[in-house]
Design a protein around this nucleic acid. Structure first.
Lengths: 214, 214
DNA sequence: GGCGCTTTTTAATCTGTGTTAATCAGCAGA
DNA sequence: TCTGCTGATTAACACAGATTAAAAAGCGCC
């Protein structure tokens, strides 16, 4: 089937993935891991192949070039992050405050970056290192994701739930940056994900809050 | 003089830097810039050379290998960050609160990362991508730097100036991470450094603060 | 039990880049 | 002017890693 497009037919996965599809996934998973650890330029086909337990040229059966493989990882990563955060927001009760919504996004972002997907962190962290053409396409997706956050902040601000002295853009990027950076230091053995999420949410909630109106 | 060691003689810079020293600096500056933009594996000698306006083999007059050059950048970077933050803390009035001290560190970190030195951001951001031997030496310096922050947080916590529900390590890393990430998005044309620093400081101060004792 | 399709491998090629060797330009001092 | 040092250059080498070519291995199917 491959060699050109993995045509996303609309069927649910009623049939479990074929062997070929599983290999393809193994390769993507491996690529995401390597990309995460070594950065764009440091991502070697041979490393990916080894992790995926195939020979390097086998990658070319599924992807037409190194760059296409990496792009697939990045695209999937951005999509997963967006999806997970969106779902978390949708799951919120209707009466959640604006700050509640932001905290939910904080938690979801950390989850996807730390636990759910190497793809997401690979995509987010390597953005600036990508070659320009790839970078541009990634930026489009990143902006879509950023828009979700922008809106969260804007609405909260409009509702008076955010300290007026905070620059919205700077605050947003500082928060997201802190979350992104977590992949650098978080180690499941040294502290639970819950701890990190709780701390991040408290930090965010208090950090953004307006002065007590008294 | 070079070819082995740039023996740090103890003299103050009473004599302005020789031509050789200036070339060496140009090379280091270029390396820091490239390292910043392209990551460890993406840092090519040819790019550095071009930026520094020399031919690639000229680098070998000053450094014995690519790795040694990069290590020099990383080491300098960590040192500068530590130095700048330490100075900022030392300049604080004696009656500054613990939170004041933390905010000063936040400001100083942002300054060094965003304005003062490509070295610092190169060093901090590329840590995880470095080859293991280099990485280990960098980690030592990074821990020294981290200790400064750890102590700031611990003391503040002991003084009751930090919310007890926050995990100290997570909070520290989230904050520092947010600052580090700023190099990815901050653009001097789009907003002043002051704005970013103010926002970061307010975010931090409020984020860490304990619940109103009432 | 050989035929044609998919999937994967082995062997070979090509390119980019770190590094070395050999050489050159400038310049200070004798 | 010759000599020797410093700071660089050009040419050449070596090797790693992406890509391609050709062949092999599975494997369903008649």
């Amino acid at each position: 089937m491959p060699k050109q497009r993995s045509v996303r037919t609309d069927e649910r996965p009623r049939t479990e993935p074929s062997k070929s599809e599983r290999t393809r996934e193994r390769i993507l998973d491996a690529a995401a891991k390597v990309l995460n650890r070594n950065g764009y330029a440091g991502t070697r086909l041979t490393d990916i192949a080894e992790l995926a337990q195939v020979q390097a040229p086998a990658l070319y059966y599924y992807f037409s070039s190194r760059e296409e493989l990496i792009e697939a990882v990045v695209t999937l990563g951005m999509a997963r992050a967006l999806e997970h955060v969106t779902e978390a927001l949708a799951a919120l009760p209707a009466n959640a405050s604006r700050l509640d919504r932001i905290c939910a996004a904080v938690g979801a972002h950390l989850e996807v970056v730390l636990r759910l997907s190497d793809y997401a962190s690979a995509a987010i962290r390597n953005g600036p290192q990508l070659p320009t053409d790839l970078r541009e396409r990634q930026l489009v997706e990143q902006r879509t994701y950023g828009d979700v956050w922008r809106r969260l902040i804007d609405e909260a601000r409009a509702a008076g739930e955010i300290h007026p002295d905070l620059d919205p853009r700077a605050a947003r990027m500082l928060i997201i940056g802190g979350l992104n950076w977590a992949t650098e230091w978080w180690n499941p053995n040294r502290g639970s994900l819950r701890t990190v999420i709780n701390t991040a949410q408290l930090l965010t909630r208090q950090g953004l809050a307006p002065p007590a109106t008294d």
